[in-house]
């Protein structure tokens, strides 16, 4: 067997640990050098941005955070970007969670964005954390007609009646927009099916990249915009940078998705490299085996 064929056979049965090493190095190196690439926003992302831009000051936005730490690296940048945009527009934010750990995600965004970047905003006046409720789509079905029947207190145990911004809120129809971030069930699909469509309320949101293809069919009638994964979050950040130049100051804080797209791009490229490599070795070996079979048949 020629030296070339030996190399090809070795590559064809390459130990997966080499693949892990290359992907690991691709991610680590691009993270260390903080590689970033320009992003061109896609129409689905632009639709969400434009919807928020079009809302008048004081509009009510329901922000259900239905994800957990497993998908936090992918979804947290879009949560931060949504909240920043709502703050800049002077929208009133109502946080809610249908995932037990969604509550922690809400805590995180309040701690990270609202209290640090917008200290002037007042809890109970500009934003409220209504906390987690068990029941999945059952919760949505109830609050579609009567929100206060299920939510009697906020996440900290304060009576809803004593929270100024809860005045005038009777059910989901009291909101101008539902901006959901989800990593599975219950999530964006349930908000569309049980709140957006029956209540005729605009729904938009973000989800993990693997979930996005399952949600595209709802666009544009039932879902005005969709952000799939860190790429869409980076596109949204790019839009915010265009619209609000003050976000250009602190890259570490305001461009987390754009920064995370660097490692993702390099990781994707390394996967593409392995797919090409795998196919080249596969085709060479297939051709060789076919030739061997032919010569064997001729001998017989």
């Amino acid at each position: 067997m020629s030296r070339f064929m030996t190399i090809v056979e070795k590559l064809d049965t390459l130990d997966k640990r080499w693949v892990f090493l290359v992907v690991g190095l691709a991610v680590v190196v691009s993270t260390i050098f903080r590689l970033t690439f320009p992003e061109r926003p896609t129409p689905m992302v632009c639709a969400i941005y434009e919807k928020i831009e079009s809302l008048p000051e004081g509009s009510r936005v329901l922000l259900p955070f239905d994800y957990d730490p497993g998908s936090e690296p992918e979804l947290q940048p879009m949560a931060d970007a949504f909240v920043r945009h709502c703050c800049e527009k002077g929208l009133v934010m109502y946080f809610i969670a249908l995932w037990p750990l969604g509550q922690n995600m809400v805590d995180g965004v309040i701690r990270r964005v609202l209290t640090v970047e917008y200290p002037d905003l007042e809890y109970g006046v500009d934003y409220v954390d209504m906390g987690y409720k068990a029941g999945n789509e059952g919760v949505i079905a109830v609050i579609l007609t009567d929100l206060k029947k299920l939510y009697t207190t906020d996440a900290h145990g304060s009576s809803i009646q004593r929270i100024p911004m809860m005045e005038g809120i009777s059910n989901i129809r009291s909101f101008d927009l539902i901006l959901n971030i989800s990593a599975g069930y219950p999530g964006l699909k349930e908000w569309i099916q049980y709140a957006g469509t029956p209540g005729n309320i605009p729904v938009a949101g973000g989800c993990t990249a693997v979930q996005a293809p399952l949600l595209y069919p709802y666009h544009p009638e039932q879902l005005l915009g969709l952000m799939g994964g860190i790429k869409a979050a980076a596109e949204y950040e790019a839009l915010l940078l265009q619209g609000y130049p003050k976000f250009r100051n602190d890259k570490n804080r305001f461009q987390t998705a754009l920064t995370r797209m660097g490692p993702q791009t390099i990781a994707h490229l390394s996967i593409v490299f392995f797919i090409i490599l795998g196919n080249i070795t596969f085709q060479i070996l297939r051709r060789r085996r076919a030739q061997e079979r032919q010569s064997q048949q001729r001998q017989e």
Binding site: I275, G278, F282
Partner: peptide, 10 residues
């Protein structure tokens, strides 16, 4: 990455 290398073959 590992699964793509092994499974995505023409």
């Amino acid at each position: 990455a590992s699964a793509s290398f092994r499974a995505f073959r023409a």
